[in-house]
Every structure is written in C-alpha cells, then in structure tokens.
C-alpha cells in the first residue's frame, strides 16, 4: 500500500515536470502555430546553467533562482535570432530549423561543458525524507518538486484564466489573426509567451537535474513526451496538457515500478527488466494514437 502511494506520487512528480515543459510548448504551438523542437534544448540548457550557477554561488537555491533569468535571456536571444523568422513559415521549415537548433545546442554543450554528464548535489535540507502522511516517508527533494511544480501550475492556470494577459493568450490560441486585427500587439505577445515557455522549460530542467543526470541530449527524449502530452491534451490547451501530463506520468511510473514484477511471472528476469520500461513507453504512444483516432485534435483541442 505504501509502495503504491509512493509510486503514485512519483508519477505525479514526473507528470508535473513534463507539464512544465509541455505548458510552454502548447502555448507557443497554440498561439504562434510554431513547432519548436528546440524546446527540449532550453530544458537541457536550464540544467547546465543550474549546474554552473550552483557551482559559482555555492548555493542550490541561489543558483536555481539565477538560472531562471539566464534562461529567459537565452530564450530571448533564440527568439530574436531564429524563431522570429519562423512564425510565418510552414511547419516543415520550422521542423527543419529547430532540428538544426537541437544539433547546435547539443554540440555547444559538448564544447562548453564537455561530453561527460554532470550531477548536481542536493543541499542538506532537501536530501532527507519527509513524512507526508504518518508512517509514510517520501524523499524531500521529490516532494519539493511536487510543491514547486504544483504551485507553478496553479499560478499558470490563474494567469491564463484570470488575468488580462491570459485572456489575450487564450484569444491568441483560438484565433491569432483576429486578436491582431483587434489591435493587440501580437509580436509582443509572441515574445512574452516564448520567454515564459523558456523559463518553464529551464525550471523543469533544473528541477530534474539532481534526480536524472545532466547530460547532452537529455532534452530530446522528454521533448517527444512533451509533444505527445500536448497532442493528447489538444494544442493550445493548458488544462489538456495538465491532464495528459498526469496520465503519461502515471503510465511511465507504472511501467517502471509494477510491470517488471508482473512480467517476471512469465518472462526471465533479464527480459522482464528490459521489456518493462519499453512497454510503458509503447503504452504512452498507444494512448496518444487512441486519443487521436477518437478525437483528431486532442482532448481539449480546437474543434474544426
């Protein structure tokens, strides 16, 4: 029972991380109609920035806080140099150019930080466990991820649903041209949303860094999962992205935590531990395929 509760929490934690990545992606997608494969690179750069800044400041919290403006600056540069030229292009050009960005960033990291992975040590106050329920200890850092991720998700939901900027974002996602025609500075909105997405991606990267390792290409696999999430949720929908991220998080953890034992009843140990994570990934893609067949624009996507 405890094991089950902890695994469900792990799923929530993974889901929140992916939600942070997916939120920026679904907004840039929904509002700017931009396929940004390089979003995972911002996630990776967030982790590397955090590694460097935590080293410099010798403080986990301070380094983490400094990472966010650094990521915002990087996002602004990328937007101004490359992304801005892609808004009016078709998806194929966007895929190509941002694929080029991925290659560039992966190689840049190799040049600056070297090919070996990095690890970020946790500060003392986050490395123990907390008792979230009487008799149920849970790693403090993972719990902190859930808290921060949850708070950010709530803030984002509040901003999108309750503020004027959020209203413009929602309007932009449903009809870009119309809000431009109504006199909204669409370029400013684009830049704002892209910067916001970059900060969220870097936040996810820096939070993931201590539990996964900081390595080249770390953003690529999780980026594809983030795409799966926004496609399941419906492009442009924050609510959809949140629900889909939670579902994907649970499937992933299920595959890692429970499937191996299940498979061992009829497979050899080695085969089971190889097959289980793979099967959970396959399940995720099957869910996506199923959703798209049932609703070709995702759960909460725009209806045509």
């Amino acid at each position: 029972m405890d094991y089950l509760a902890i695994q469900i929490l792990n799923g929530v934690q993974l889901g929140l991380l992916m939600f942070l990545l997916a939120a920026g992606l679904t907004l840039t997608f929904g509002i700017m109609d931009l396929v940004n494969l390089a979003h995972g690179s911002l996630y990776m750069m967030g982790a590397y920035f955090a590694w460097t800044l935590i080293g410099w400041t010798d403080s986990f919290v301070l380094g983490a806080l400094l990472t966010l403006p650094a990521a915002l600056a990087l996002g602004a540069v990328v937007e101004a140099v490359v992304i801005r030229r892609l808004y009016a292009r078709d998806h194929l050009d966007q895929v190509l150019a941002t694929f080029g960005l991925i290659l560039f960033f992966n190689e840049l990291v190799r040049v600056i930080w070297g090919p070996a992975g990095k690890s970020i040590a946790l500060p003392a106050f986050l490395s123990g466990t907390v008792e979230i329920l009487p008799g149920l200890p849970y790693p403090a850092y993972r719990f902190a991820i859930i808290v921060v991720g949850g708070v950010v998700a709530l803030l984002l939901a509040w901003m999108v649903q309750r503020t004027r900027t959020g209203m413009l974002i929602r309007a932009g996602a449903s009809n870009r041209r119309m809000i431009g025609a109504l006199g909204v500075d669409i370029n400013l909105l684009f830049t704002l949303v892209f910067g916001l997405g970059a900060v969220f991606a870097a936040l996810a990267g820096l939070m993931a860094a201590p539990i996964l390792s900081v390595k080249i290409g770390m953003g690529d696999d999780i980026l594809i999962l983030a795409f799966v999430i926004i496609v399941i949720g419906g492009i442009g929908s924050i609510k959809g992205a949140f629900i889909a991220a939670m579902v994907v998080g649970q499937i992933d953890i299920f595959g890692r935590a429970f499937l191996p034992d299940l498979l061992k009843t009829f497979l050899s140990n080695a085969a089971a531990s190889t097959a289980a994570p793979a099967i959970s990934q396959v399940l995720i893609y099957l869910v996506m395929a199923g959703v798209l067949v049932w609703r070709p624009t995702g759960l909460f996507g725009p209806r045509t």
Binding site: Q281, Y285, M288, A289, L292, P296
Partner: peptide, 17 residues
C-alpha cells in the same frame, strides 16, 4: 485522419513506438 502538426506528431509517435 489528422492534419498539420498532429500528423507530424502522430507519425513521430508511431515510429517511437
């Protein structure tokens, strides 16, 4: 059955599968 970005992503998803 899907269009545009959804098509790009679903073909990617099937190949990942």
């Amino acid at each position: 059955r899907t269009r545009g970005v959804y098509f790009i992503m679903i073909t990617l998803a099937f190949s990942q599968l």
